[in-house]
Design a binder for these strands. Sequence first.
DNA 1: TACATACATTTGTATATACAAATTTTGTAT
DNA 2: ATACAAAATTTGTATATACAAATGTATGTA
Lengths: 164, 164
Amino acid sequence: MYIQILYKQLNIEDIIKTEVELPLSRKAIVNLLYTENWLMDKISLELKSFDISIQQFNVLRILNGQKGKPANLSTIQERMVSKMSNTTRLVDKLIAKGYVERVICKSNRRKVEITITEEGKNFLGKINPIMQSFEDRITASLSKEELIMLNELLNKLRNIDYNH
Amino acid sequence: MYIQILYKQLNIEDIIKTEVELPLSRKAIVNLLYTENWLMDKISLELKSFDISIQQFNVLRILNGQKGKPANLSTIQERMVSKMSNTTRLVDKLIAKGYVERVICKSNRRKVEITITEEGKNFLGKINPIMQSFEDRITASLSKEELIMLNELLNKLRNIDYNH
DNA sequence: TACATACATTTGTATATACAAATTTTGTAT
DNA sequence: ATACAAAATTTGTATATACAAATGTATGTA
């Protein structure tokens, strides 16, 4: 598996314009942080016309993935890509938009059961193909093999936790 | 160049526990967002005892990289890893801590000249070796070749902008 | 039963961020 | 000079987020 570079690349050193050569570890870290920001900007722009934030969209997709089965707050938090501390208020926003419902759990009244509404499903149905197309476009500069490799490298990077 | 997987990996599907297999493009995007959050959590924790945020630390390093030459706000913004809209207030915080100075530019009074102070340099001198060691540890699960490959893949991913 | 403890969520509050509007200065054409 | 548009930064404001404390509920145990 090779990475072919067919055109001039704007690499991270050119962007942050550092005078001295960065150590490889820092370069990779800065590049990851920078690229995530770049990506978030693109996603926000794409979602802007739908009046929903990335976080809200993410939660909606988690609930949709539950296939009818309600989720409680801690389940949502576990599965969220970025764990913000206040899932309660995030869900509040989705309720205000009519996309989700919240009821107190009968078996354990400390818990709440959160489900996506029909309106929420319709909304996702509209937005999903648009996001799918966006995701394909934004990753188009990488081949299938390169995307797989990127996934593996990111997985492996995080394994420091379990490998230390 | 191969990626060798020598131990059980916690990959992104296991983490977000999606019922259906994600398209490769979405998997890579989610993985990138997730990994960046994971990394930010680690960095924040590392910086916590120094009472400085990642953004402030980043600006301080940019100013230090100027080697005496003052920087104005737009230069800082360009080089910042994550472009928050309010560099003014970020610089305010660093001034309050005594780490940077701000003077109005003589030649163009719309501009401000921002420089790192001696105190700021001392602070960086203390914190830099600690961060260097942290960065080495956090990337330790990837080999030199893998780190280079990760850098190249991230650079190439962002090239969608110039390649469209 | 009574009590301590842990759990799940909510609320309060301080700070951070995004975005738009305002301010000040500069450059340029009339 | 005067007017006008653009540039660089600052300020105002609404929303988002982090963190701690509070609330209400369940569980274990003496």
